[in-house]
């Protein structure tokens, strides 16, 4: 009975989610947002990347150490930023002490905190999520950057950064065309090297939506907009003709890739795989798009046809 009830509830929730989702950019914002803010606090990596892309030095940054280590875009602008703890539970007292005039966050992390944050400073929460009806990973970064650029009077910088991302995308697409890979199966997978299976990611993630723009075909799409990934077992992986794979997760050295089974797979025998060095792939701004698109282009160019 419990199961049935839970399932019903789940269905109701899903249906509700479907109605509620709408392609909006700002999930919630304080009334005071928009007066050329100077002291800005960023509550997550995506917002931090966008702020530094515009040349802004955020006064406080959540997940600061992890941003510096894994993303590192514009680290020089973060030298005097105050660390605010985790993105899940940014330190509210530290934010209050900074007396910011704008707090930037994202809906999937910070929407429940809106009232609290709004009480501290004008707050802007962007509608970042993996729902299929919203902006996808590439588009949300561009839209947010444009919006932040307008808000801070840095439209020119925003446009330049967006252009940079699109150029890298175009170069990667050109590479795909030159190798006649349009419509061909190219998958971005996270290998589970202990089990010999693979994880396919949601299409709305940064890397998923980036691949969609390259006109290649993703052989394994996710069934629900709410699911984050999907397991692909070895037999299915082996059975996909003409497959090319880009691996994420930095497991190049795993014994799996030296096993006889791996070496017997068509993908391995024809050298149709590569490892993307990027340590992040779920969300990111145009500069992340440019970095990953360049990695994808280089990987595709290095593959044997």
């Amino acid at each position: 009975m419990a199961m049935r009830l839970v399932c019903c509830l789940l269905l109701v929730c899903l249906a509700h989610g479907a109605w509620a989702a709408d392609a909006q950019l700002v999930a919630r914002q304080s009334a005071g947002v928009g007066d050329a803010p100077q002291r800005i606090v960023s509550l997550d990596e995506l917002s931090t990347e966008l702020l530094v892309s515009l040349g802004i030095e955020p006064v406080g940054v959540a997940n600061l150490a992890s941003y510096r280590r894994y993303i590192g875009i514009g680290n020089d602008l973060l030298e005097s930023s105050v660390a605010l703890g985790s993105a899940q539970q940014p330190n509210l007292e530290a934010i209050a002490r900074l007396e910011p005039d704008l707090i930037v966050g994202v809906a999937y992390l910070h929407l429940p905190l809106f009232e609290r944050l709004d009480g501290l400073a004008p707050t802007l929460i962007y509608q970042v999520s993996l729902a299929s009806t919203g902006y996808d990973g590439v588009a949300i970064g561009e839209a947010m950057l444009e919006h932040l650029g307008r808000l801070t009077g840095r439209q020119a910088q925003a446009a330049a950064v967006i252009r940079e991302g699109r150029q890298a995308l175009a170069a990667a697409r050109q590479s795909v065309r030159e190798r006649d890979l349009q419509g061909e199966p190219v998958a971005v997978l996270y290998p589970l090297v202990q089990q010999g299976s693979f994880i396919a990611l949601n299409q709305q993630t940064l890397i998923g939506s980036l691949m969609n723009r390259l006109e290649v075909r993703s052989p394994w799409t996710l069934r629900s907009a709410h699911s984050l990934h999907r397991r692909i077992d070895m037999r299915r992986f082996a059975g996909e003709p003409g497959l090319r794979v880009l691996f994420i997760g930095g497991q190049e050295q795993a014994p799996f890739f030296a096993s006889p089974l791996w070496k017997a797979l068509p993908v391995a025998q024809q050298q149709r795989y590569a490892f993307l060095p990027t340590p992040y792939w779920t969300f990111g701004g145009p500069r992340s798009t440019a970095a990953i698109a360049t990695q994808v282009r280089e990987a595709i160019e290095a593959m044997i046809r």
Binding site: Q88, Q89, Y108, P112, L130, S224, H226, S227, L228, R230
Partner: peptide, 23 residues
């Protein structure tokens, strides 16, 4: 957590319990 949430850490924190940000 494994299949549906884009934010595993937050789900974990919720399931372990937290009084952060309570009003």
């Amino acid at each position: 957590m494994a299949q549906f949430t884009s934010n595993i850490a937050q789900a974990l924190i919720w399931m372990v319990g937290s009084s952060y940000g309570r009003t």
